[in-house]
């Protein structure tokens, strides 16, 4: 108890950094996933090639390796030093963005062709079709996978302590060195990560229910706030599975 009282502020600081990295990485990943995923569904071969190369490259290389490259190799190459936090967000965003782009591409392609035909019959432009019909429908399909990706991203932020960022994992190690209490020092960090994940899961599930309602589907597993309390099921390590 005394331990908690003394150390909690430091954990909070570390967790705050973890949250910042998660939000920053997720924002970058989301933008990349949308832009590059949509490119992959156009009829221009060069656009689809960009998508393939991006997806295969950044899915193929571990985020940690990309982060090391930005922190250590990039300054050597350009003489320009990146803030480690920026490098971390960049690496995480590129990695998760690559998985996300594939999700976006697949979800758009899964919108029934008949829906696209209806937009042709109403003479929508490509932009209108995307904005008004295709993306809103694909959105509901992307969300569950996005949810899993956000959890994976949050977990992946833990590698940043290796480049000197004082996140939750880093705080746990510092406190462990200071107190010698490995089990407690790490235990608190584990619980905080777990809670953070639960918050993300709840948030994503609320988004999913809203998107489902828009498409006239009943919320999964009964409606209302109670549906949010279903046992979470972070199942697939996403993008990986397809």
């Amino acid at each position: 108890m005394e331990f908690l009282e003394q150390q909690l502020p430091r954990y909070a600081d570390g967790a705050w950094i973890t949250i910042q990295l998660t939000v920053g990485g997720a924002a970058l990943a989301f933008v990349l996933a949308m832009a590059i995923g949509i490119l992959g569904t156009t009829r221009f071969w060069w656009a689809r090639a960009i998508t393939t190369v991006f997806v295969e490259t950044f899915r193929g290389i571990a985020a940690l390796v990309v982060m090391f490259w930005f922190v250590f190799a990039f300054p050597d190459l350009t003489g320009f030093e990146l803030d480690p936090r920026f490098a971390a967000i960049l690496a995480l965003g590129l990695n998760v963005g690559a998985y996300g782009a594939e999700v976006v591409r697949a979800a758009i392609n899964a919108v029934p062709p008949s829906q696209v035909e209806a937009t042709v019959a109403l003479n929508y432009s490509w932009t209108q079709r995307m904005r008004l019909v295709v993306l809103p429908q694909a959105w509901a399909q992307m969300l569950p996978t996005f949810g899993n990706l956000v959890i994976e991203l949050m977990k992946a932020t833990a590698v940043v302590y290796l480049v000197g960022i004082v996140d939750l994992t880093s705080v746990a190690q510092q406190i462990r060195s200071a107190t010698g209490q490995t089990f407690v020092a790490f235990g608190v960090a584990f619980v905080l990560y777990y809670l953070l994940a639960q918050v993300l899961i709840l948030g994503m599930r609320a988004l999913e229910n809203r998107a489902g309602k828009k498409l006239g589907r009943a919320p999964t597993g009964g409606g209302g706030i109670l549906s949010l309390l279903r046992p979470p099921s972070v199942g697939t390590k996403v993008g990986v599975a397809k």
Partner: peptide
């Protein structure tokens, strides 16, 4: 569930 929602790297170090 706990293992899946906490980072691999901190598990390894721990």
């Amino acid at each position: 569930e706990f293992i899946r929602t906490t980072p691999l790297i901190i598990q390894v170090v721990f």
